[in-house]
């Protein structure tokens, strides 16, 4: 049996978690049990994408530290029938994957992007050295855990008559939250976004992000940034894409005023479609861009926002 940890936001299962159901069906054999920690989860959605069971580890506690979440999961995952554990390779998903795997003393491979069967062996591929190479690995034990990169395996509908189970859990944590600077309402996390509009030193200052934010809004996109923009203090680090920021694979990445340094590419080169807008025709970013415009971003970005508004208005 396969156990899949699902993340949700205010009870709605995240897309990257639904992707895991399709991944599991294609990679492994056996019944799929999806599980989440929370108060209320729209679990029916998991049955639409192939879960045979859904277990809600119920708690009223709106805790946000992974220590508590992992502790809530521990007694449930001890069930002997679970052989394979799958987690989303989001920031929290990787953290929880590592805690739960360590608790169960299981080998863990993080951030899987591909799998294949070869002479009865299952091989998993994941990026290493900041995306400059990939490694195929084999796990020698029957029980193991993996985390799977978001936006790589598109979710496919696969309706099941799933069974729902609710288990009360208590959240135990020694780590205490003492302060939080809440994000702006509606802000989309770059790590999960399907479209990212990203700005670099070329935006010229904090105000330079305004046209990018407007474009992001009409696209339903997240705003990303290069380290140069973050280090200059124009936008906070949670937006940074790259080796020392987030690794993303959206379906569309629009790089505005970003030169395309190796450390930046490390975080976004697996994006499906890359658009570059840069004044310098020799900027490295054009080497990996699918579409490029050599021009001033302050001319192009607002015009692009208007064009897309028109397009969305039409359809």
């Amino acid at each position: 049996m396969i156990a899949i940890y699902m993340e949700h936001k205010n009870g709605k299962l995240k897309k990257h978690s639904l992707e895991l159901l399709t991944f599991a069906k294609n990679a492994f054999e056996g019944e799929i049990t999806a599980f989440s920690v929370g108060k209320e989860v729209n679990y029916q959605e998991s049955f639409n994408y192939g879960a045979d069971h859904f277990v809600l580890l119920f708690t009223e506690n709106e805790n946000i530290h992974e220590e508590g979440i992992a502790n809530a999961i521990k007694s449930f995952v001890k069930r002997k029938e679970f052989k394979i554990f799958i987690f989303p390779a989001s920031n929290t998903g990787r953290d929880i994957a590592a805690r739960v795997s360590a608790f169960l003393d299981l080998p863990l491979l993080q951030d899987i992007v591909e799998f294949k069967k070869e002479n009865d062996n299952l091989l998993f591929k994941r990026p290493i050295v900041a995306g400059k190479a990939y490694v195929w690995e084999k796990i020698n034990t029957e029980r193991f855990a993996i985390s799977v990169r978001p936006n790589v395996f598109p979710p496919e509908e696969n309706k099941k008559e799933g069974k729902f189970e609710k288990i009360d859990v208590s959240i135990e944590e020694k780590i205490k939250l003492i302060d939080i600077k809440e994000k702006e309402e509606g802000e989309i996390d770059v790590a999960e976004a399907e479209i990212i509009v990203s700005g670099g030193r070329g935006v010229g200052g904090p105000d330079g992000f305004k046209p990018l934010k407007e474009l992001a809004k009409v696209l339903g996109a997240a705003v990303g940034a290069s380290r140069a923009a973050v280090d200059a203090g124009w936008i906070d680090h949670s937006h940074q894409v790259g080796q020392t920021g987030k690794t993303v694979s959206p379906k569309l990445y629009i790089a505005c005023g970003i030169s395309g340094a190796l450390q930046h590419l490390a975080g976004m080169r697996t994006s499906k479609v890359i658009v570059a807008i840069n004044k310098d025709p020799n900027a490295q970013i054009f080497e990996i861009a699918d579409y490029g415009i050599v021009s001033d971003l302050f001319e192009i970005v607002p015009a692009l926002t208007e064009e897309i508004k028109k397009l969305k208005g039409d359809t």
Partner: peptide, 25 residues
């Protein structure tokens, strides 16, 4: 003993050349 073994290393897949849209604004 190892529980995980690295089998093979691969470079990133080659990216097909992109298009520069060379039209006036």
């Amino acid at each position: 003993e190892n529980r995980v073994v690295s089998i093979k290393f691969e470079p990133p897949p080659p990216k097909k050349p992109g298009k520069i849209i060379d039209l006036p604004f």
